[in-house]
Amino acid sequence: MSKKIPRHDFEPKIMAFVCKWCTYSGADLAGTSRMDYSPNVRMVRLPCSGRIDPQFLIKTFEQGVDGVIVSGCHPGDCHYNEGNYYARRRNLAFRQLLDFQGIDLGRLEFSWISAAEAIKWTKVIDAFTDRVRALGPHKQYHELIDPYDHYLEAA
């Protein structure tokens, strides 16, 4: 029996960009082990966290998500030896850029989750979902994303 899912006024939309070797396998394990975690997350599987271009994250915000999570293998465990080291540097800079732009860093998460860490995956997702839920909808950015909708209202 699954536990009762609490209801909230606001359910954030969360996007996860994950590395296929570690985090995706970890999430897969969480699924096959029938672990409970927030259903708010949608996942995109990529070969490596080093493949996750910051452009993806901008596009994701443009599609109206409330939080984005990037996850890959632990340092030293990269299937391609060093992809996640590059990802780490890039995301460090990118976070600061988004912060300077005025996007709450609470809406961005970066984690190392290995293929065995199904429990960590569920914990990270649950904690992140709660955090984004507390922040509320990403209202400021949402105001930008449909710049022409008001043209459909009859004069």
Binding site: E82, Y86, R88, R89, L92, F110, S111, V124
Partner: peptide, 16 residues
């Protein structure tokens, strides 16, 4: 340039 290289002990205090 910094983004085409890395150090194994780069800061990762923002990472879960």
């Amino acid at each position: 340039p910094p983004l085409i290289t890395y150090k194994t002990d780069d800061s990762e205090d923002f990472i879960q």
